[in-house]
């Protein structure tokens, strides 16, 4: 039986935790939920479902980090533009 087990899919738990903490959006929680599902599904022998949960955990973690990075960049571009405008007017 042992040899029939397919390799364990990555649960992306660390990625999920990083996404929860880094980008202030609760989407990271969704990623953690999928990460916990990967482990329990794999332990119960539902390998296909575990693989799917693994993909979901990765996607949601990356989406969460992506939104955070975009938000961050957006704010920096806005402030950058404001500072540049102020500098070029000599009012800064």
């Amino acid at each position: 039986m042992e040899q029939l087990r397919p390799p364990r899919p990555d649960s992306y738990l660390a990625l999920a935790l990083i996404s929860t903490i880094v980008c202030c959006l609760p989407i990271g929680i969704v990623s953690i939920i999928y990460a916990t599902k990967v482990n329990s599904l794999y332990a119960d022998g539902y390998y296909d479902e575990a693989n799917r949960a693994s993909k979901n955990a990765k996607t949601w973690g990356l989406v969460s980090i992506g939104i955070g990075v975009l938000f961050f960049l957006g704010i920096f571009l806005i402030y950058g533009a404001i500072i540049m405008a102020a500098l070029s007017n000599g009012n800064y």
Binding site: S11, L13, L17, A35, T36, N39, S40, A43
Partner: peptide
């Protein structure tokens, strides 16, 4: 971390 109880524990701690 591959144990499902540890992973669910982390989820519960976060929530």
């Amino acid at each position: 971390l591959h144990k499902s109880k540890v992973a669910s524990g982390i989820l519960i701690v976060v929530i």
